[in-house]
Design a protein around this nucleic acid. Sequence first.
DNA 1: TGTCACAACTTGTATTGAGAGGTATTGTCC
DNA 2: GGACAATACCTCTCAATACAAGTTGTGACA
Lengths: 255, 255
Amino acid sequence: MIGIEGQPAPLQSDSPEPLWQQAAKAITREIAAGKLASGSRLPPERDLLTRLSISRVTLRRALQSLVTDGVLVSSHGRGWYVATEAHQEFPQTLESFSETAARLGLAPSSQVLRAEEAPASLDEAEELGIAPGGPIFHLDRIRMLDGVPVAVDMSFFPAIRGIDMSAIDFKTASLFRLLTGAGFDLARAESTIEAHAADKTLARHLGIEQGMPILAMRQLVEDSNGRPVMASTIRYAGDRYRLRTSFSRTAKTGG
Amino acid sequence: MIGIEGQPAPLQSDSPEPLWQQAAKAITREIAAGKLASGSRLPPERDLLTRLSISRVTLRRALQSLVTDGVLVSSHGRGWYVATEAHQEFPQTLESFSETAARLGLAPSSQVLRAEEAPASLDEAEELGIAPGGPIFHLDRIRMLDGVPVAVDMSFFPAIRGIDMSAIDFKTASLFRLLTGAGFDLARAESTIEAHAADKTLARHLGIEQGMPILAMRQLVEDSNGRPVMASTIRYAGDRYRLRTSFSRTAKTGG
DNA sequence: TGTCACAACTTGTATTGAGAGGTATTGTCC
DNA sequence: GGACAATACCTCTCAATACAAGTTGTGACA
């Protein structure tokens, strides 16, 4: 950490990674950790370079790279600011269903199978870190592209007070937006992906033969404190959908 | 010894062993002797060539061979560093095979099916952005955990000049390390993941029944200029392996 | 209380210099 | 042809220093 609120943290001078890159990362980590909110102002350059023990040129190199990456914006005479967010969903390395639809020029739609509140089972309670029997909301949907079923999405999250769930059209509603609007700070997601054979129920929903290969993705979304917010199991017809992911390398070697 | 902390040690100029090899070995010995810790910086080239009494070209030849071997990494403008153990593959959001093995406490190993240079087909050439018929290197391996086959990995990349591929033990060699050492700046990867039924050949390699669900991942690795460097098709036994990914929300540019 | 000048703060740009790795060319020797 | 050397030039990293330009705060004055 660059110790914005505390101690200075010197960068690794004995590392292959350039100092400007290390500084940029340190700043990014502060933002990701929530110590610098979207839109907020960083300390002045003079302070940052003292705390990081680097020259101003090096610091500005780091800051500029973060501008290029869209993380920061600068204001001449006023200071450096954390860029504001543009998206409600995760900035992605795993392409979302709606992004895939847009990319392929296909119309996404959903058919709701289940949208109701129920008491959490032991497993569900454990997964969400709540008391067994506590109220959770289940949303099961068939996801379609141009009317063709490609996946069954079964998600659940803690019941939300103050929102009339029956008034929500879950054919089109985004769960990410719903949860964010309800005050959850979605910060992180863990996913696992497996291959299975389609069982009888799923085969019927997707209109495929029982036993066909499917992709099964389990996803757990957490808030910035690490509390689970939503759990999903999404099963895709193997011959109709592929998951797409990309990622970049940010460092050659670490110290 | 190269006498980093003491006297210079001239290499044997009347030995049949090339000077660059002697120099590489001398450096390796220093590391093995603990005089250069993992991640630490070597003296500058100017100092090393003086102490070893060899030309810079020869020294760099030695250093480069150690890069290929994964012992050193270079940082332009900063210096030469002893490589650290981790972070040789993408550090990122799709857990690597070796990371999965470590996490589960299982011993990873490989059986080489194919390791040869061949002219690129039209499709292969197109994928790598090279001329059809141009030389590419194919590496097909069965990946195993604790001796149990879990995946077949078929990768190809442009043939690398200056490296004796027959000298490489592909049971253990890391392709990322090899390509990085050969000068490719691996910066980005695109992957797609599908579910298929195992065909006859794959089923035989993995020891599973034909038709079983498998995860099929296609991955294209690019360098920092966006040029494709390596293409891989990795097929995992669906009941023995799951892909794992996680990602975090960070600030992003306003659109 | 409002206005204005000035100082202080803060970012933006430029120059110079040193250290250090990266690439290329030419030539000699075995 | 491989090994090796000498030489030249390029590019990146990093720092110190100086000056320019925009913003904000403060004190003086009407």
